[in-house]
């Protein structure tokens, strides 16, 4: 007679990790992301994206210049490899800023229904009526473009969206009996929010983090393309496309194509990872 049987199943975390590692979409996404992270960290020591050579400008792809050269004769391959760096610094920082602020705001809104929630909800709804890009565009026009302001602008623009996700997660936890039990123990609101509820809503926050990271890259690239994001002489992809876009009418397709593909591969990789995580955390 077994009075203390084996526990129902092993640790959740390991199970999830194994599930993730066996998801092809997740693994492909991870591989692409790691490639670009590698380029961002060591790329500039291997290639020089700024070395110009006016004699060899606008050369089509060849054995010597795999991706051709741009107007200043800079090697496009070197620029594509090195172009991953700034965006991979700015986008994650902006995401973290947005997640932290949004989680704080969402916790407060979800836990204190009534006046606090109503007021903040109106504010958030008003901000969300504006597309992210327009918000960031206006903010950067006001603040001036630099890596720091791009981080702040995107982070703040993310805050209401994250807050809304966290708020609804908190709302569905708030009615569970373990929260009532904590109240019966006389726990403070801060304790209940941070110690009781927060650990249970980490899965949706994690998913939100990856989804937001994808959007951050999307937005940073777009802002750079519009000339209000990262500034020259950064080899940033969006910026490079913006600089060379006028040339494609003349048939110099290689000056934009590889940058475009690079951005595409990076955002897709992030979303494959987000999708994999979403599936594993469900």
């Amino acid at each position: 007679m077994s009075l203390a049987p084996a526990l129902r199943s092993g640790p959740v975390r390991w199970e999830r990790t194994r599930l993730l590692l066996s998801t092809p979409t997740f693994m492909v996404g991870l591989a692409i992301l790691l490639f670009w992270v590698g380029c961002a960290t060591v790329g500039q020591t291997l290639v020089d994206p700024l070395a110009d050579d006016m004699m060899n400008s606008l050369l089509p792809p060849s054995a010597e210049h795999w991706f051709g050269t741009d107007q200043l004769g800079r090697d496009m391959f070197a620029r594509v490899i090195a172009g991953s760096r700034d965006i991979l610094i700015v986008a994650p920082l902006a995401t973290v800023l947005g997640i932290v602020c949004g989680t704080l705001l969402g916790l407060i809104m979800g836990f204190f229904p009534g006046l606090v929630d109503d007021l903040l909800s109106r504010l958030i709804e008003a901000v969300l009526a504006l597309p992210l890009l327009i918000l960031a565009l206006v903010a950067l026009t006001a603040l001036g473009a630099s890596n720091g302001t791009v981080i702040v602008a995107i982070g703040l623009a993310f805050t209401p969206q994250v807050a809304r996700v966290v708020r609804s997660a908190v709302m569905s936890e708030r009615h569970l009996d373990y929260v009532a039990a904590a109240r019966l123990r006389g726990e403070t609101a801060v304790y209940i929010m941070v110690v009781e509820i927060l650990p249970n809503i980490l899965p949706p926050i994690t998913v939100e983090l990856t989804v937001r990271l994808g959007y951050a890259i999307f937005t940073v690239a777009t802002l750079s393309f519009l000339g209000v994001g990262l500034q020259p002489p950064s080899p940033d992809w969006g910026l490079a496309i913006s600089e060379n876009y006028a040339l494609i009418g003349g048939g110099y397709w290689w000056t934009v194509l590889f940058d475009a593909l690079a951005i595409g591969s990076l955002v897709v990789s992030i979303n494959l990872i987000a999708e994999g995580l979403n599936g594993a955390l469900e």
Binding site: L176, D177, Y178, A181, L184, R185, G186, E196, P199, N200
Partner: peptide, 20 residues
Amino acid sequence: ARHAIQMVFQNPDSALNRSH
């Protein structure tokens, strides 16, 4: 008073914090 009245809930799944 608070300590003196406690509760046992209907649904033990929601009554226990699943991350603790």
